[in-house]
Write a protein that binds this DNA or RNA. Sequence first.
DNA 1: TGGACTTATATGTGTCTTGCATATATGCTT
DNA 2: AAGCATATATGCAAGACACATATAAGTCCA
Lengths: 245, 245
Amino acid sequence: MVDPEEARFLEEYDAETFDRPSVTVDLVILTASHYQLWALLLPRDAHPFKGAWALPGGLIGKNESLEEAAKRVLNDKAGLEGVFLEQLYTFGEPGRDPRTRVITVTYYALVDENQVVDALALKGLDPLVRLKTPWKGEAGGPVEAYEAGRQLDLAFDHAEILGMAVKRIRGKLNYAPIGFQLLPPTFTLRQLQAVHETVLGQRLNKDSFRRRMLSSGELEATGEWETEVGHRPAELYRFKSLTAI
Amino acid sequence: MVDPEEARFLEEYDAETFDRPSVTVDLVILTASHYQLWALLLPRDAHPFKGAWALPGGLIGKNESLEEAAKRVLNDKAGLEGVFLEQLYTFGEPGRDPRTRVITVTYYALVDENQVVDALALKGLDPLVRLKTPWKGEAGGPVEAYEAGRQLDLAFDHAEILGMAVKRIRGKLNYAPIGFQLLPPTFTLRQLQAVHETVLGQRLNKDSFRRRMLSSGELEATGEWETEVGHRPAELYRFKSLTAI
DNA sequence: TGGACTTATATGTGTCTTGCATATATGCTT
DNA sequence: AAGCATATATGCAAGACACATATAAGTCCA
């Protein structure tokens, strides 16, 4: 089932032009909302994988560190700055890009939903894409992406990369305070629990979660309460490490 | 304190020869013995960092996956096969190699001491180098290397890479059964505890460790006991996952 | 040869964490 | 004003864990 147009494109591409691999960064920009994980994917308008969806990425500049390249892509492609960003994994199967050898150093970013939606709207970008993880726990494997109920074709090995990001954040949530990276600066314990449940893909005991978070020493009460919620308002908290740094 | 010979070498090196970065793999080959961590380091006999010690590594082949390249280096440089090997992190600061832009994808291997000592002896290589971790827990940072009591100069950013490997294995030991990778196929609970204490850099409670390991379901009694140990012999165990796979 | 020594293995106990249940508080809605 | 939904607080039992004690089983040495 080879698209003839794509076949012609590949023929004309001189794979021997370069001896060394190209090195890129690709970004998994994640947020949590409505008990779903979402990522930024961009439709490809050129071969290969024309019409499929791909992670934002780009070549690494000549005098640019890997992290600087990731931050540049984050800003250029998504309009985001100052968010959690960490190296994920490096993918380099020889055939992962049909044009030439491309090794990609992937990073993942965690963003508050409101922040990323505003930033994308400013750039006139498509909305985020819903992720579905067809495996439990930290088993790992590719992830599926949906928009408006339809499953999307993912370019290159980007389904694997998305899967690695979900696996990493699931593992990390159990020992590092990163859930708040997906929330606004102040939030209720209920919101934080929803984020954890979304990331882990399972329900958590409310009281245990509450006690565990409060006794961790990572949270700080703001003395303010949410309003207009149709029920008793909960106190707003912030993460201490945010203000301590 | 620039070595004039090295300065001349760098002048003559044409950094503009290539537009794309070189991509290499570098390996941290770790073992545990005598309550110390040890790694394989090779003395450099050419500039840059002539006389300093470096991790075994090499360029990634044109049609070779990253993991294949790591396995090739593991075999060529250390004579090792079939050991635990996992991607660690990718380092790519623009100035990390003074010759040209080099991005290195690092892997770490965990090996039984006897196996690696035998393999190195066959290749006529220097013995392993003792590591000293000047930080606690999973704080992270560079690691120091010693041979015969003298601290070694480490080439490039290899002290950082070693530090990342120790940090990774310390974290991983708490939730994944990887301690046995540093032991022979059968071992006593005492040996396993010594490995854990070596990696973590702290003493552990004997009874708790024992019960935790036995109730984890990962261990299997062999029905054999150690001999000639000068005290009551302990039963030998093996890891189930080794035989189940 | 037998007792001291060293380590393995088994059992008990108090503390802390965690899941589950109950009770009360509070703001919004009707 | 009553009902509702959720927040917050407290109690309790089961399990995990550190620490302590007791017994077992080899080696070493007088």
